[in-house]
């Protein structure tokens, strides 16, 4: 149970970064922390006590495997996170070219 709460705290750290920080790069880092917290949480949900890695091997009959499905799903989620992060970073670079700053309070051409 403690581990789950630590995950929640990590998630909240990321959310704090996204909501409160003024630097674009720090916001992106916050988003990354959030994504990793949720991935960690999902992997932990699949853990079984004394479980082993879910790999079928020759001449072995493993009974106490951990749940392999969350690991597969988290891999997918990591790939998605990679794509989003790469896209946001490239947008941030272009924003820096246009505005000359990473400060989000100075980037406000859109209003209303």
């Amino acid at each position: 149970m403690t581990l789950y709460f630590l995950c929640l705290m990590l998630f909240c750290v990321g959310l704090y970064g996204v909501l409160r920080k003024r630097n674009l790069v720090k916001i992106i880092v916050g988003l990354g922390i959030m994504e990793y917290a949720m991935n960690l949480f999902f992997v932990l949900l699949g853990y079984r006590f004394d479980g082993r890695a879910p790999i079928v091997a020759r001449d072995q009959n493993i009974l106490n495997m951990v749940d392999p499905l969350p690991q597969a799903l988290v891999l997918t989620s990591i790939v998605i996170g990679l794509a989003v992060t790469a896209l946001i970073i490239s947008i941030a670079i272009r924003i820096y070219e246009k505005y000359g700053t990473f400060d989000i309070t100075k980037i406000k051409k859109l209003k209303g």
Binding site: A86, S90, I93, R94, E97
Partner: peptide, 13 residues
């Protein structure tokens, strides 16, 4: 390609 794109972003000034 992602790495390449991030590296060779040209400054448009």
């Amino acid at each position: 390609a992602i790495f390449l794109t991030l590296v060779i972003v040209e400054k448009s000034k």
